[in-house]
Design a protein around this nucleic acid. Structure first.
Lengths: 240, 240
DNA sequence: GAGTGGTCTAGACCACGCA
DNA sequence: GCGTGGTCTAGACCACTCC
């Protein structure tokens, strides 16, 4: 195991990556035990806290479980990617299915009471409202409605269609750091069914999200609905 | 801020709890900055790593964001409880709505290929299959199907009805540590609609889950479906 | 008693953001 | 240049599990 101490990538991260690779590639089998912290620290010539930090990353991902007096064991079951802080656009790009966006609506309105509260802006302040249809490989996947505060009202319909919302925000130096989501279900309206190319009264997965940037400010509220035959959410939970 | 150094509760946890209380009670307003690590450590007479560990807990909960050179700021937006590693039974008990369970099915079968793989047991080995209706304050909320490996086939229908699945497992010394869930949606079957007291063709939130104990062994697979008008899932995502 | 992870200390140096 | 968080070290003591 070769660590690069000159690299800007933290040692604990390099170690976590290597251990994760050993697990997903099956070299460390489910149920098997990892070397203990002291031995690992010794062998890699790093301090014990650094090793602990690396292993904690694996715990948070649900790859291993730890017990005092026992050791660290690899969890059974296949690895799932889990929900990440990316947009559907990123998801689709990564999975190689050609994403495409059609902007259905794009206009500036005034924030009503509820929305103003969600975005922590004054009631009545200008809000950009966009409604988009997302397709992958020509197939409609989702309808996405988003509301953004005043500083983003100049985002053009063409930009959004071309680059995706999160990419545009990143280009402006806005990084999403925290997102609070609520996942549910409902029946598609007739309009939605037509736009998504599904039968009337089909079930949709819904996701409502408020996203916050690195200063803790709300930068977006979104209501998305997905074809339930093409999309679902994965979550890995770890007991703290 | 009074820390109890004699307590078995870790210092970092005591500190995290107190900071969290300051935030949810509004003493630390959204957008405001926390004291820096050095000052906090000094004032509480603990080391800096201990303070860091406490603040990291808040970051993981999505309560604060941190930036190098800037500081630690409280995130805007209301606090959400988020998904936790508890059963719906626990959820309902905690929220004070009287939960009630009716066991609709309870029988031991043989594991088919797919289930055997999910639970990491031999194909054809005995499996306990239960199907339950969950109600709160007399209102049906969810239909829950669960499959458990051979060591739990002796759980009686009465026990499950009385205590809930997770409580029974805990009583046997089995603690759920990791769960991998997939959340989606579908249309209710006519039977489900009748049992849940909703109209035909209503939308349901579905959740498929594999749960693992503290040794990383799969101890349960569940397929649950919830009335979409009464239940949804909250997730808080934090950029790593 | 031996081995494991859990907590805690007291420092060090660095990278980043801002004035 | 200064203040912030990010990383890393080298130890210490403890609690728990198993033999």
């Amino acid at each position: 195991m070769d660590l690069d101490r000159a690299s800007p990538i933290p040692l604990y991260f390099q170690i976590a990556q290597r251990l994760e690779r050993l697990i997903v590639e099956g070299e460390l089998r489910p149920g098997s035990r990892l070397e203990n912290e002291i031995a690992l620290a010794d062998r890699l010539s790093v301090s014990r806290p650094t090793i602990r930090r690396a292993i904690q990353d694996l715990v948070d991902k649900g790859l291993v479980v730890r017990r005092r007096g026992i050791g660290t064991q690899v969890v059974h079951g296949r690895i799932t990617r889990g929900i990440e802080l990316t947009s559907l656009f990123d998801d689709l790009q990564r999975s190689g299915r050609k994403p495409e966006t059609r902007v259905l609506e794009h206009r500036v309105t005034d924030a009503d009471q509820r929305l103003a509260e969600t975005l922590s802006v004054a009631s009545g302040s200008p809000i950009l409202h966009v409604r988009r249809l997302r397709l992958a490989a020509g197939t409609p996947i989702a309808i996405m409605e988003n509301w953004l505060p005043a500083e983003f009202t100049d985002l053009s319909s063409a930009d959004i269609q071309e680059h995706g919302l999160y990419q545009l925000l990143r280009a402006r130096g806005v990084t999403i750091r925290v997102a609070k989501q609520r996942i549910g279900a409902r029946i598609a309206t007739d309009t939605e069914a037509r736009q998504l190319g599904v039968q009337r009264n089909s079930a949709l997965v819904t996701m409502d999200r408020t996203a916050f940037d690195s200063s803790g400010t709300a930068v977006e509220y979104g209501h998305h609905c997905y074809r339930s035959d093409l999309y679902s959410f994965e979550v890995t939970l770890v007991e703290k």
